[in-house]
Deep mutational scan, measured.
Amino acid sequence: TLFEALYDYEARTEDDLSFHKGEKFQILNSSEGDWWEARSLTTGETGYIPSIYLAPV
């Protein structure tokens, strides 16, 4: 399942991933609670993103 960003997000740590509204992600690991490891389909970068900023596509 792909997810789309509902809002912009600016990374706060080196493990976080910055993204823009409308960016799409492949989720790599969603077992860490509210922060999911994801790969951006726009940039190819991976990192942790807040799941509350996402909606399934």
Rank of each mutant, 00 (worst) to 15 (best):
Thr1Lys: 12
Thr1Pro: 12
Thr1Gln: 14
Thr1Ala: 13
Thr1Arg: 10
Thr1Asn: 12
Leu2Arg: 05
Leu2Val: 13
Leu2Asn: 05
Leu2Gly: 02
Leu2Lys: 04
Leu2Phe: 10
Leu2His: 06
Phe3Leu: 04
Phe3Glu: 00
Phe3Pro: 00
Phe3Val: 06
Phe3Gly: 01
Phe3Asn: 01
Glu4Ser: 05
Glu4Thr: 08
Glu4Ala: 07
Glu4Gly: 03
Ala5Phe: 01
Ala5Cys: 02
Ala5Asn: 00
Ala5Ile: 02
Ala5Tyr: 00
Ala5Ser: 06
Leu6Ser: 03
Leu6Thr: 06
Leu6Arg: 06
Tyr7Leu: 10
Tyr7Ile: 12
Tyr7Val: 13
Asp8Ser: 09
Asp8Asn: 08
Asp8Ile: 02
Tyr9Phe: 09
Tyr9Val: 03
Glu10Asn: 11
Glu10Met: 11
Glu10Thr: 13
Glu10Cys: 12
Glu10Lys: 11
Glu10Gln: 12
Glu10Leu: 10
Ala11Val: 02
Ala11Arg: 08
Ala11Lys: 09
Arg12His: 11
Arg12Gln: 15
Arg12Pro: 09
Arg12Ser: 12
Arg12Leu: 12
Thr13Ala: 11
Thr13Leu: 11
Thr13His: 15
Thr13Gln: 11
Thr13Gly: 15
Glu14His: 13
Glu14Cys: 13
Asp15Thr: 15
Asp15Phe: 15
Asp15Pro: 05
Asp16Ala: 15
Asp16Thr: 14
Asp16Gly: 15
Asp16Arg: 15
Asp16Ile: 12
Leu17Thr: 03
Leu17Gln: 03
Leu17Glu: 01
Leu17Tyr: 07
Leu17Cys: 03
Leu17His: 03
Ser18Pro: 06
Ser18Trp: 03
Ser18Val: 03
Ser18Gln: 04
Ser18Asn: 06
Ser18Gly: 08
Ser18Ile: 02
Phe19Ala: 06
Phe19Pro: 00
His20Ile: 12
His20Leu: 11
His20Gly: 09
His20Cys: 11
His20Lys: 15
Lys21Gly: 04
Lys21Ala: 11
Lys21Val: 09
Lys21Gln: 08
Lys21Leu: 05
Lys21Phe: 05
Lys21Ile: 08
Gly22Phe: 05
Gly22Lys: 04
Glu23Ser: 04
Glu23Asn: 06
Glu23Lys: 01
Glu23Arg: 00
Glu23Cys: 05
Glu23Phe: 03
Lys24Tyr: 13
Phe25Leu: 05
Phe25Ser: 00
Phe25Asp: 00
Phe25Val: 02
Phe25Asn: 00
Phe25Ile: 02
Phe25Pro: 00
Phe25Tyr: 02
Phe25Thr: 00
Phe25Met: 04
Gln26Lys: 09
Gln26Arg: 08
Gln26Ile: 15
Ile27Trp: 01
Ile27Cys: 03
Ile27Pro: 02
Ile27Phe: 03
Ile27Ala: 02
Ile27Thr: 02
Ile27Asp: 00
Ile27His: 01
Ile27Leu: 06
Leu28His: 04
Leu28Lys: 04
Leu28Ile: 11
Leu28Gly: 02
Leu28Met: 08
Leu28Trp: 04
Asn29Val: 08
Asn29Met: 07
Asn29Gly: 10
Asn29His: 08
Ser30Val: 12
Ser30Arg: 12
Ser30Glu: 08
Ser31Leu: 12
Ser31Ala: 12
Ser31Lys: 11
Ser31Glu: 10
Ser31Cys: 11
Glu32Trp: 10
Gly33Trp: 10
Gly33Ala: 13
Gly33His: 12
Gly33Asp: 11
Gly33Asn: 11
Asp34Asn: 09
Asp34Pro: 10
Asp34Arg: 06
Asp34Phe: 14
Asp34Glu: 13
Trp35Arg: 14
Trp35Gln: 07
Trp35Thr: 07
Trp35Tyr: 13
Trp35Ala: 05
Trp35Phe: 10
Trp36His: 02
Trp36Leu: 06
Trp36Gly: 00
Trp36Tyr: 06
Trp36Val: 07
Trp36Arg: 02
Glu37Gly: 04
Glu37Trp: 15
Ala38Asn: 00
Ala38Gly: 09
Ala38Cys: 11
Ala38Trp: 01
Ala38Ile: 06
Ala38Leu: 02
Ala38Lys: 00
Ala38Ser: 04
Ala38His: 00
Arg39Val: 12
Arg39Gly: 01
Arg39Tyr: 09
Arg39Glu: 05
Arg39Phe: 09
Ser40Thr: 02
Ser40Ala: 06
Ser40Phe: 03
Ser40Leu: 05
Ser40Ile: 05
Leu41Tyr: 05
Leu41Trp: 04
Leu41His: 04
Leu41Cys: 11
Leu41Ala: 05
Thr42Tyr: 09
Thr42Ile: 10
Thr42Lys: 13
Thr42Met: 11
Thr43Cys: 03
Thr43Gln: 02
Thr43Lys: 03
Thr43His: 03
Thr43Ile: 01
Gly44Ser: 05
Gly44Cys: 11
Gly44Pro: 01
Gly44Trp: 07
Gly44Ile: 01
Glu45Gln: 14
Glu45Met: 15
Thr46Leu: 07
Thr46Pro: 01
Thr46Phe: 06
Thr46Trp: 08
Thr46Ser: 09
Thr46Ile: 14
Gly47Met: 06
Gly47Gln: 04
Gly47Lys: 03
Gly47Phe: 06
Gly47Glu: 01
Gly47Asn: 03
Tyr48Ile: 09
Tyr48Thr: 07
Tyr48Ser: 07
Ile49Thr: 02
Ile49Ser: 01
Ile49Gln: 00
Ile49Phe: 01
Ile49Lys: 00
Pro50His: 14
Pro50Leu: 14
Pro50Asp: 09
Pro50Lys: 14
Pro50Ser: 09
Ser51Gly: 08
Ser51Val: 11
Ser51Cys: 11
Ser51Phe: 08
Ser51Pro: 10
Ser51Glu: 05
Ser51Met: 09
Ile52Lys: 15
Ile52Gly: 14
Ile52Gln: 14
Tyr53Asp: 04
Tyr53Pro: 02
Tyr53Gly: 08
Leu54Glu: 01
Leu54Asp: 01
Leu54Thr: 03
Leu54Phe: 10
Leu54Pro: 01
Ala55Arg: 11
Ala55Lys: 12
Ala55Gly: 10
Ala55Pro: 01
Ala55Ser: 11
Ala55Met: 10
Pro56Ser: 07
Pro56Gln: 08
Pro56Asp: 05
Pro56Cys: 06
Val57Ser: 07
Val57Leu: 10
Val57Asp: 06
Val57Phe: 07
Val57Lys: 03
Val57Met: 07
